[in-house]
Structures are given as C-alpha cells and as structure tokens.
C-alpha cells in the first residue's frame, strides 16, 4: 500500500470492515479476488454468513493456519482454504446455477471503473497486447442479487474510477448497487451517484473533485 492511500480516508482493511457492516445476517455471499477477500475478516459478531466460491464450494472458511491445507481444497483465486461446518461441494454448472439463478444474495467485487448508471468495468483495460481473461465476473454481475464494489476512489495515477460512462470494456450493464472507496460510500441511483457517507476526515468537495460524474450530497 502506498503512503498516499493511507494519508486520507479509509485503509483497505477499514474499507473491507465497512462493507461487512452492510451484509445482512443469513446471506449467501461471494467475495471477489483481492480486496473483497478481506471482507470475511470483519463480519460483525453474531452474524452468520455462508461463503460461496465459484469452483464448487459453499461454506468456505478462512485460509488454513494450523497446517499447509490441501491442494484440492481451494478457492476461485486458487488459494488454499478451509471448510466451515455445514459446507457442501458441487460441480461448476451447479455453482453457476447458484449465481445465474439468483440464489447468491451479495457479491463484492473490485473495479477498474464504475459508471453513474451502475455499469461496471473490471476485467479488461482493452490494451492491444493484453491477453483477454474474464473468469466468472460477467456471470456474477448478471446473476447475483446485490453487487457491491470495493475499490480505491482513484487509480494509482490519480484518475477517478467513478465516471459518467466507462471507457474500459464492460463486465455488466447497470449492475452495481453501492460503491465503497477509501473516501466514501456511494449508492448508484436512478439519479446517479448518491453520497451515503464520507470517510472520517474527508469533505464532500474533496470526494466530488475526485469523482468524474456529479455526486448528490447525502
């Protein structure tokens, strides 16, 4: 993490902690690879969530701590995980039936760009020589009931990630419900980006300056 990301607003861990507050007790949840994975560490006491991973497991637990884990017990990021009591295994078509069929309640994903109408771009920056790779992102946004995005407000080069319309290739059209950044929590509404709350010590003007679309005050 660079120093510039820690001087103002929430850290990655604090962003993940903030997302965790909004996931209701009893939800089936899919966490994307990267910052979204941190969300599982911050589930409030007393809430029971069941984690789904695309490669065929419900009831995924955290990474193994007591041993090296097992090579055939992994998550969609291909990292070793553990099982929670009540877990189940299933094949890939059933796993994506859970996703596409609207059975998963919440999915938390990263983003390159989110547009004010909820369009999401998170799989390709469209560079000529890049090898295109999509994984399960398009299925998740098309099928999961609620899509939360967790991301830095701006890129490493200071470019806003919340935009009027995405310049990168889309993952899905009008799919994002809410965005959690280091600077703010922002809803996607029919009127555009609606501020929900500012991170501690951050002003509305500071967030608007770094958002490439109009931001409605809370």
């Amino acid at each position: 993490m660079s120093a510039s990301q820690t001087t103002v607003g929430r850290t990655r861990e604090q962003m993940a902690e903030r997302v965790a507050q909004d996931i209701p007790d009893g939800s089936y949840v899919n966490l994307g690879i990267g910052i979204p994975e941190l969300v599982a560490k911050f589930v409030p006491e007393g809430r029971e969530l069941i984690y789904h991973t695309e490669n065929g497991l419900l009831g995924m637990g955290p990474a193994p701590t007591e041993d090296d884990g097992e090579p055939e017990l992994i998550n969609a990021g291909k990292r070793r995980v553990t099982l929670n009591p009540g877990a189940s295994f299933f094949h890939h078509a059933d796993s994506f039936a859970m996703i596409r069929g609207g059975h998963i309640d919440v999915c938390v994903l990263g983003a390159f760009q989110v547009a004010q109408n909820g369009d999401l771009a998170n799989w390709s920056t469209g560079e000529e020589d890049a090898i295109p790779a999509v994984g399960g992102a398009m299925d998740l946004v098309a099928g999961v009931k609620t899509i939360y995005v967790i991301t830095q407000h701006c890129t490493k080069h200071g470019e806003p990630k919340l935009v009027e319309s995405c310049s990168y290739p889309l993952t899905g059209v009008g799919v994002v419900s809410r965005v959690y950044t280091d600077l703010a929590v922002i809803d996607v509404t029919p009127k555009g980006f609606q501020l929900v709350e500012l991170s501690p010590g951050v002003s509305f003007e500071y967030v608007q300056e770094r958002t490439a679309a109009p931001l409605l005050p809370a």
């Binding site: 094949h91 999509v134 398009m138 299925d139």
Partner: peptide
C-alpha cells in the same frame, strides 16, 4: 474466451 459460468453451462 468464454465467461466461466457460460463455459460450464455450455459443457453441461
């Protein structure tokens, strides 16, 4: 290039 869920369902 095929989205993962579409790939699984095409195979099924």
């Amino acid at each position: 290039l095929v989205p993962q869920g579409t790939l699984a369902e095409r195979i099924r």
